[in-house]
């Protein structure tokens, strides 16, 4: 680490450009090249806005936390009538893309972990759940004897699925339109939910990512507190945010399960649970709604709306 450059040692300047030149010269004299990547990036920084996003959904508020973006739960808020579930209008991908763009604008690195599914469209874990449960029973015959606290049965280890995988990848032109640098957004294609947790663990453990978005498939058992606690610890240690998109697929089986609290699918270590959905206000014009259903810091109740246009052609 080099010694700091003292501003009052520099000659007075009239303009910011002159100050930049003075700084570059002073830093060069201290052995830092003017072609240093970070310095060059800093010198090219665009005019930063002084506006502050103080909403509980801004990136600084999510640091060190596990966040779950779920589908709206219940029928009372349905924009399509009382006979329809709201899972279909889920808009977590759009919200997450905005968050990634915000992170990149702040100079943070981000990654997106995608979860595969069988080619026929069925969720990845469905086909193997029964087999895995049987296997778990036979592998741990003493579980019943050691369960002296009468806890519910341990969660089923997920066996790797078989067959070709398919991924639902965020459409890159839309991501770019949202202001995301695609080259700086690695997409990790995990085959199933266990690999999603593994990938999130590796990414966060490196300390090189400030934001990790992870798809969490429907019809998946709640992950164990051990794994989630480990991820939470990594988020806090490395000041990162882990956002689970727990309903990226239009599938209402997870709502029927009633897993977790208040519609959540990821357990009690989730610090912030959101519901994100969209409504069509006019042909081609949509509103993105985000409601906070659980917030361990501020309490639930926050609701935010933002206008969004539909893809070209809807209107």
């Amino acid at each position: 680490m080099s010694a700091p450059v003292r501003l009052h040692d520099l000659p007075a300047t009239e303009t910011l450009q002159q100050l930049r030149n003075q700084l570059a010269g002073a830093l060069q004299r201290k052995g830092i090249s003017a072609h240093h990547g970070g310095l060059r990036t800093a010198l090219r920084l665009p005019e930063a806005s002084t506006a502050v996003d103080r909403s509980p959904l801004a990136l600084p508020e999510l640091v060190g936390r596990l966040v779950e973006v779920a589908a709206p739960h219940g029928h009372d808020r349905s924009p399509y009538g009382n006979n329809s579930s709201l899972l279909a209008a889920w808009a977590g991908t759009t919200w997450a893309a905005g968050l990634v763009a915000e992170a990149q604008r702040a100079g943070e690195t981000a990654a997106w972990v995608l979860c595969g599914e069988a080619r026929d469209g069925e969720a990845a874990t469905t086909a193997v759940r029964g087999a895995a449960r049987t296997k778990a029973r036979t592998d741990h015959p003493t579980d019943d004897l050691t369960n002296i606290n009468h806890e519910p049965p341990r969660r089923v280890p997920r066996a790797p699925p078989v067959g070709p995988r398919a991924w639902r990848i965020p459409f890159a032109p839309d991501l770019r339109a949202a202001g995301i640098d695609l080259a700086a957004l690695p997409l990790v294609r995990a085959a199933h939910s266990a690999e999603v947790l593994q990938a999130a663990d590796v990414l966060l453990r490196s300390g090189a990512f400030g934001l990790v978005i992870a798809d969490w498939p429907a019809r998946t058992p709640t992950p164990g507190d051990g794994a989630m606690g480990r991820l939470l610890g990594l988020c806090q240690r490395h000041e990162a945010a882990l956002v689970f998109l727990s309903a990226p697929y239009t599938d209402d089986a997870h709502a029927d399960q009633g897993a977790g609290e208040a519609g959540g699918a990821l357990g009690s270590l989730v610090s912030l649970r959101l519901e994100a959905w969209r409504t069509m206000t006019a042909p081609g014009a949509f509103t993105l709604h985000v409601a906070v259903r659980k917030d361990k810091r501020r309490g639930p109740g926050w609701h935010d709306e933002a206008p969004r246009s539909g893809p070209a052609g809807i209107g």
């Binding site: 893309a97 690195t109 639902r168 839309d174 949202a178 700086a184 957004l185 690695p186």
Partner: peptide
């Protein structure tokens, strides 16, 4: 293939933010 991680240089977002689509890696 992503070999390295690079520092983000985000482009200017579109003036009107739009919904983000998901594309299936193989059509259903």
């Amino acid at each position: 293939p992503a070999q390295t991680l690079c520092s983000p240089k985000p482009p200017e977002p579109a003036p009107q933010q739009q919904l983000v689509r998901r594309l299936r890696s193989s059509p259903l």
